[in-house]
Design a protein around this nucleic acid. Sequence first.
RNA 1: GUGGAAUUAGCUCAGUCGGUUAGAGCAUCAGGUUGUGGUUCUGAGGGUCGUGGGUUCGAUUCCCAUAUUCCACCCCA
Length: 405
Amino acid sequence: MIQSLRGMNDILSEDYERFEYFITTASTIAKRYGFHYIETPLLEETALFKRSVGESSDIVGKEMYQFIDKGENDVCLRPEGTAGVVRAFIQHKLDKKGGIHRFYYHGAMFRYERPQKGRLREFHQFGVESFGVDSVYEDALMIMMVADILKALGIGYRLKLNSLGDQNCMPAYREKLVSFIESCGDSICGDCERRKLTNPIRVLDCKNEACQNLYVNAPKLINNLCEGCQSDFDTLKTILDQHTIAYEIDTNLVRGLDYYSKTAFEFVSDNIGSQSAIAGGGRYDRLIEFLDGKPTPAVGFALGIERLMELIVMPEPVREGYYFGAMDAEAITPLLLAAEKIRRTQKAVVEYEPRSLKAHLKGADRINARYCAVIGENELAQNSIWVKDLVDKTESLIPLNDFFV
RNA sequence: GUGGAAUUAGCUCAGUCGGUUAGAGCAUCAGGUUGUGGUUCUGAGGGUCGUGGGUUCGAUUCCCAUAUUCCACCCCA
């Protein structure tokens, strides 16, 4: 038997209904916030991700679906959505055009990782990107939008908030932190020893207890923000308070990459296992210039759809449409015609096998049909169709001529 | 990439100290005197016990490999 590849899943029937419900709900909300859909390719030049993600850490070498195609192009399946949207933004010269551009997208992303729950090789994200707005109000808008989406889906969450500073205060903080780590000497773990060089800020959320004890007195970025970053962060907190969105400051919430600045946020759920982040986002004012665009302020977020799936509270299903069943082989012909007529406006499902009335009622019930319509011996004799409303429990015998009017 | 656990019916799981017909619940299908569902009762069908090797008279059970899932770590754009 041929199986799907590791970490790559099919999404079918009820799962897909959830999936679709999520997309519909999130898209509706994004449109209400004034965002427009953008579709970008799944495959991009590897250089795009190398430059957006940076050469740092294992990401490029180890965790991307990278290969050389038949035209000898170095390409990658997209590991995230932002880079492609930014590429499109620059390619279509929207950076030069100026103004505000707001996009939302959803689709498959690919990361070559060891799978576990909530961590797949092919997974789906819903995201939005906003270009051209410098104001921290746009950062707040992002958070409000995620909160709206999660609320609409009946999903509980905790919101973690941090500021990453900008090019004025981040580098200085980084140096301060590195010298603090160095002052710890050999007592830090091997992982931290490595992180000190690759991504020093990550040492702050080391899982090692001994390290954590050492880092209690580590300098915190939040106490080392420059004036602009500090006032934006304060404003953001005020806005969230005014909109009664609860948050917790998490000074360990970081983004490893250089183009991130100021606002960083993460929505987490305590009910889905170790991969608990359901949405993450923040400001990335420098990415556009990193990708050869005209410097443009930008902020965005992405939601991991698979991680939300089991948390979504679906609305009560409503009975709709018709189930058609034959109790006699001869009855199929008029039933197919009846179904064809109903399908012009409603759902109509036909069972081809002649069965007992009881079996057909069960069948109608199972597909959640509003009406069960059958034709048997009696109906054939009277050239009519028997219809039962499964909600009102009323039934009627309708002459076929009337039914087809 | 590292370490660990799991894999038996469509689903959730029992079980076999290696032995002849591998079980349950739910689901499916059929019946309950012959045409009334979602909520009853009875019965039936459905499994080369993840895959490939090995040990053995004999393997679903023991050993090895492999695949997938899950957990912890690494990483997390």
